Amino acid sequence: MDIREIKEEDARLYLELCQRLDEQSEFIIFEPGERYISVEEQQEHIRDVLSKKRSTLLVADHGNELIGFITIRGNDLKRIQHRATITLGVLEEFQGRGIGKQLMKAAEAWAVKQGIRRFELSVMSHNKQALWLYSRLDYSVEGIRRKSVVLDHEVVNEFYMSKMIE
């Protein structure tokens, strides 16, 4: 397995990864079948992300399959260019193997080179596996987004978490 920055030609594989995650996990914001995007639109999105200095998308490449990703969305405004929001996803059958941790560490290494010193994320309050990973990587809960997600007709809280990186 290789952790690397996404390429435009990964658009189809990345879209397939995201659609599989939508089907597998209730912790993804998209519901199954709700991701309406073509491969060409996905390619344009990748091009847009890669064009920004403080944003990127790293993937876990397992042969001819992408099995996980982490997005880093930074900002060029001077007052907040030191922070970025991250989103992580790993296919169910590859969870528990350290891939999420490897993606997080690779994202931190990339971010430091860009002058990013703070990562922020949100996680559903009942996502125990993600909370365990984030707490092991020194993320702290800064707040609660109360009733921020509707999941199976129930409202769910999210934790807002952050970490200072070096």
Rank of each mutant, 00 (worst) to 15 (best):
I6W: 05
K7F: 01
K7A: 01
E8W: 00
R12I: 06
L13T: 03
L17P: 03
L21C: 11
S25Q: 07
E26S: 09
Y36F: 06
S38V: 03
S38Y: 00
Q42H: 00
Q43N: 02
H45D: 09
R47N: 02
S51W: 01
T56W: 00
L58F: 04
D61K: 15
N64Y: 09
E65P: 02
L66W: 08
F69D: 05
R79H: 01
H82R: 06
A84Q: 07
A84P: 04
T85K: 13
T85W: 11
F94V: 04
G96V: 13
R97D: 01
G98R: 07
G100T: 07
K101G: 11
L103V: 09
L103A: 08
E108I: 12
E108C: 12
A109E: 14
V112P: 07
R117W: 08
F119Y: 11
E120C: 05
V123Q: 06
S125N: 11
H126W: 10
A130G: 04
Y134T: 06
S135Y: 00
D138H: 14
I144M: 01
R146F: 06
R146D: 05
S148K: 11
L151D: 08
D152I: 14
D152Y: 15
D152T: 14
H153Y: 15
F159H: 11
Y160H: 09
Y160W: 13
M161V: 04
M161I: 06
S162T: 12
S162L: 07
I165D: 08
